[in-house]
């Protein structure tokens, strides 16, 4: 177990009303517990507004969690008195969604890549330059690019630079926040392949945030589905696609576009989502998904569904499966 999230919450205060006296909270992440194993690629899937990116930012320390524990290699990062971003960033890194915005247009590639090394006081000037060349090699870019500005690079090349920046301090864990969604389809595959080979080479663990289920199918070892700041279902990838349980998961799987009859037959029965994801300020009572769920029952409005373990590795948060609830918790012993 490299990373364990224990009931993580991230609320953003919103003031409104006369003289901004009323205080409400956007519950972007509302109690997420996860355990990620060393060396795995953990897929976190959800639609826009599900809180998946916020969770990623909270893990790397860009947001401070409202409540809960982030336990990285046995050390709690979240409840430290002064959360030391610098210490965290050596072990946990992030690659952002849009490489157009994640690289400063006014700084050269060299300046951008050198920053993490400088912050952590790694090496002399000469050693750092060697390290930068090595990094570019790793992401398969020519070293001449060091002196360029991001605008001279294509989207895919920029994302490679962003990956190189994350690798600069030799972290063990990288949060990938939709690393391919801003790229051309032809480039997506190359970037994903690069990420996979880097993971193998450097023994990296990824939290791969995406809304692309078909990508997860090929890449992730386990998949978690998020909806309105909460988890719906967590399962190993093969089981996830073979035996989806949560109505929302089924809905998502049935909406994957396919090209062949064969693929079509693998999909669960088509259920069309009703309406839009509700606002995280005014969550529906009970289960967050009940307003769009075709199988909603009375209890769904009254009680929040608890975690149900279907088998050792497959958990689902839905009242439909409460009867068969197996009492138990994570097995923390890897």
């Amino acid at each position: 177990m490299i990373l364990r999230l224990d009931d993580i919450k991230k609320y953003f205060p919103v003031r409104h009303g006369f003289l901004q006296r009323k205080m409400e909270y956007v519950k972007a992440v509302d109690g997420v517990s996860l355990a990620i194993k060393r060396g795995e690629i953990f897929g976190l899937v959800g639609e826009s507004g599900s809180g998946k990116s916020t969770l990623g930012y909270t893990v790397v320390g860009i947001h401070r969690s409202t409540a809960g524990k982030i336990i990285f290699k046995g050390e709690d990062l979240a409840t430290r008195q002064h959360m030391d971003v610098r210490a965290i960033s050596r072990k946990l890194q992030i690659v952002f969604q849009d490489p157009g915005s994640s690289l400063n247009p006014k700084r050269t590639i060299r300046q951008t890549l050198e920053l993490p090394l400088k912050v952590h006081r790694l090496g002399t000037r000469r050693e750092r330059l060697g390290k930068l060349r090595e990094l570019l090699q790793k992401v398969e870019l020519p070293e001449e690019y060091l002196h360029n500005y991001p605008r001279a690079l294509s989207g895919g090349q920029r994302q490679r630079i962003a990956i190189a920046r994350a690798l600069a301090v030799e972290p063990e864990f990288i949060v990938l926040d939709e690393p391919t969604s801003a790229l051309d389809v032809s480039v997506q595959g190359k970037v994903v392949r690069l990420l996979l080979s880097l993971a193998k080479e450097h023994d990296l663990t990824y939290l791969f945030i995406t809304h692309d289920l078909s990508l997860m199918r090929n890449v992730a070892s386990r998949v978690a589905i998020m909806y309105l700041g909460k988890l719906c279902e967590v399962a190993p990838t093969s089981e996830f696609f073979k035996n989806p349980l949560h109505p929302y998961t089924k809905m998502l799987l049935s909406s994957i576009p396919v090209v062949s009859e064969e693929e079509e037959s693998l999909k669960p029965e088509r259920s069309v989502p009703k309406g839009e994801i509700p606002s995280p300020v005014n969550r529906p009572s009970g289960c967050g998904f009940r307003t769009r769920c075709p199988l909603a029952m009375d209890i769904c409005a009254q009680e929040e569904p608890r975690r149900t373990l279907v088998n050792e590795e497959h958990e689902v948060h839905c009242h439909l499966f409460n009867n068969s609830r197996i009492k138990g918790d994570y097995d923390w012993n890897d």
């Binding site: 790397v60 960033s89 992030i94 915005s101 994640s102 400063n104 993490p116 912050v119 301090v169």
Partner: peptide, 17 residues
């Protein structure tokens, strides 16, 4: 709110930087 600022923050860069 640009990601490059978030990225610098996540790296642990100082506020003056």
């Amino acid at each position: 709110n640009e990601f490059f600022v978030q990225a610098a923050k996540a790296t642990g860069a100082s506020t003056p930087h």
